[in-house]
Design a protein around this nucleic acid. Structure first.
Lengths: 242, 242
DNA sequence: CGAGCCGTTGAGGGGATTCAAGCTCAGTGG
DNA sequence: CCACTGAGCTTGAATCCCCTCAACGGCTCG
C-alpha cells in the first residue's frame, strides 16, 4: 500500500498538529482528503476524552456529529422490549461511530465508553459541506446502508435475546410486516427457524405447534400461515412482562 | 410527501415499461434519478425471478451487481466456525441487497430466496458511472458503513450462537484484537458480558473463572486481563469440534 | 409402494437460570 | 485504626428450559 503524506504538518491551527500526530490517520475518515481540505477541517474537529462508562450519545438523540475512535472501546446498547439492556456491537480504534447523524437521523443506539476513550468529534455540517457534490443517488445508497445496519442490530436485540418462545414470537412479528393483504405470511421451515433463532428444529416445532393450538397461528399449505395479529401481539406482550 | 413522476412512461426500451410499473419505485434506489438518468439505465437492468431456495449469490463471490427486492423475502446466511448455518438477517420488498459489491468487495453473506422472488439486478458499473462524481470522502464513508454492517452480522453468527462457553471464548477472541502490546485486554464486567452474550452474570462469572483456572486468562486489576492467546485459540477450536 | 424429507411428539439428560450465601475490595466515617 | 457498607465477583444447590435421541405420521416422488 502506498503511503502518502495525508496531513499537512506545518499548518497554523493547533488541531492540525493533533491530526498530524494521530495514529489512526491512515485509516481515518479524512485520510482521503487533500491538504487544502484538511486545512479547512482542523479548526472544527474536537478531540474529547472520556472515562469508562461515560455516554457519548443516546438512542434517539438528534445527531449532530460523528466520531472516530482514536483509542479505547465503545459499546452500542439497545433496550429490549422486555426492558433489559443488550449490547449489540463494539467499536474500536479507527472505527467511525454515529454515521446515521450524517443522514439527519437520530442516533440508533446508545454509545458508551467501555474503556477510557479518545475520540475525534466531527460535526455533521463539516462533512455536509465537504460532500456537497453528493448526488441524491449516493445519499439514497447511504440511507440503505444505514437501514441494513439498523436491521442487523435489531436482529441481535430482538431475535437473539431471551427464551425460545419469546424469540419465536418476535420473529413472527417481524414476518408479519411482509404479510399480504389477507394476513398470510411466509412461514419458514422449522430448520430455518432454527438457523434464525439458534434453536433446534424440535424446539421450533414445539413452539410453533403450541402457538397453533393457542390460535395465534393457522398453518396453511405451501410454507405459509395466517396469523391472528391481535393474539400474536398480545402473546408477545405477555411474554415480555414480569 | 410529494409524489413526482419518476419514470418516463413512453420510453422506447421495454425495460422502462417494467420500471414504470414497478410497485416499489417510490422507495427504489433510483427513485431519486431524473428522466434522463432513467433513460440510460433501463437498458441495463434485468428483472430476474427466482424460486424459493435459489441462491442469489455466495459469500466471497466477486460482487458485480446489486439487487432490489421487488417482492418476496431474502435471507442472509453465514457459516459459523463450527460449521453450521446461521441466518443473520432478512430482506424484503424495497430492500437493497449486495451493496458491498459497489465498493469492489466480495459479497459478505450467502443470499438465498426464502419465497418466490422478483428482483431488479443492477450492474455495479451502472451505479459507478452515475456516481462518478462521488468523492473519496463519500467512498470512505460507505466503506465504514459496510464495515459496521459486517461487524453486526458477524456478531450474530459469532456471539449469539451456540452454548455459553463457546460464546465467551469467541468474545475473548474478539477482544483480543484490541489487545495492547503486552497481550492485555479490556475485560468487561460480568454484567456487561451478560448483556453482550445474553446470559446471566452468574453464568458469565462461572465461565470466566473456569477459563482462569484453565490458564487461558489471568485477571488483572482494573477490568483487564492478560490472555494466553495460544490457549485461547486452542480452547475455541476445541469448542467448535464434534 | 418404499424411500426420503419434513414436521410432530415423547422421554431423558444436561446446561443455564434462579435463588441464596459468602467473598474481596474500595470508600466512608466513627 | 478499624468497623461498616455496598458493589462486584464467586460458588453452591435446586429448578427449569432446551437439547438429544428416538419413534412415528403425512406427504411427495421415483
Amino acid at each position: 500500500m502506498s503511503v502518502i503524506p495525508l496531513y499537512s504538518k506545518d499548518s497554523r491551527h493547533p488541531q492540525s498538529a493533533v491530526c498530524a500526530a494521530c495514529e489512526v490517520r491512515r485509516s481515518a475518515l479524512f485520510g482521503a482528503l487533500d491538504e487544502q481540505g484538511l486545512e479547512r477541517i482542523h479548526a472544527h474537529i474536537a478531540g474529547p476524552q472520556l472515562a469508562a462508562d461515560e455516554r457519548i450519545y443516546d438512542r434517539g438523540d438528534k445527531g449532530v456529529a460523528v466520531y472516530t475512535v482514536r483509542s479505547g472501546v465503545v459499546r452500542f446498547e439497545r433496550v429490549t422490549e422486555r426492558g433489559d439492556r443488550r449490547i449489540v456491537r463494539l467499536a474500536g480504534r479507527g472505527d467511525l461511530i454515529g454515521q446515521e447523524a450524517l443522514l439527519g437521523r437520530p442516533y440508533a443506539d446508545e454509545a458508551i465508553a467501555c474503556t477510557p476513550l479518545e475520540l475525534c468529534r466531527i460535526p455533521c455540517s463539516l462533512v455536509d459541506s465537504l460532500g456537497e457534490q453528493q448526488t441524491p443517488l449516493m445519499r439514497e445508497l447511504m440511507q440503505r446502508w444505514q437501514s441494513a445496519l439498523d436491521d442487523a442490530e435489531t436482529w441481535v436485540a430482538d431475535l437473539a435475546t431471551g427464551p425460545a418462545r419469546r424469540r419465536v414470537l418476535r420473529l413472527l412479528l417481524r414476518l408479519a410486516v411482509h404479510a399480504d393483504a389477507d394476513g398470510v405470511i411466509w412461514l419458514p421451515r422449522r430448520e430455518e427457524i432454527g438457523a434464525m433463532l439458534d434453536m433446534t428444529i424440535e424446539t421450533a416445532s414445539r413452539l410453533i405447534s403450541q402457538l397453533r393450538r393457542d390460535g395465534v397461528l393457522e398453518i396453511l399449505p405451501g410454507r405459509s400461515a395466517r396469523i391472528d395479529r391481535q393474539a400474536l401481539e398480545q402473546a408477545a406482550r405477555l411474554q415480555d412482562e414480569v
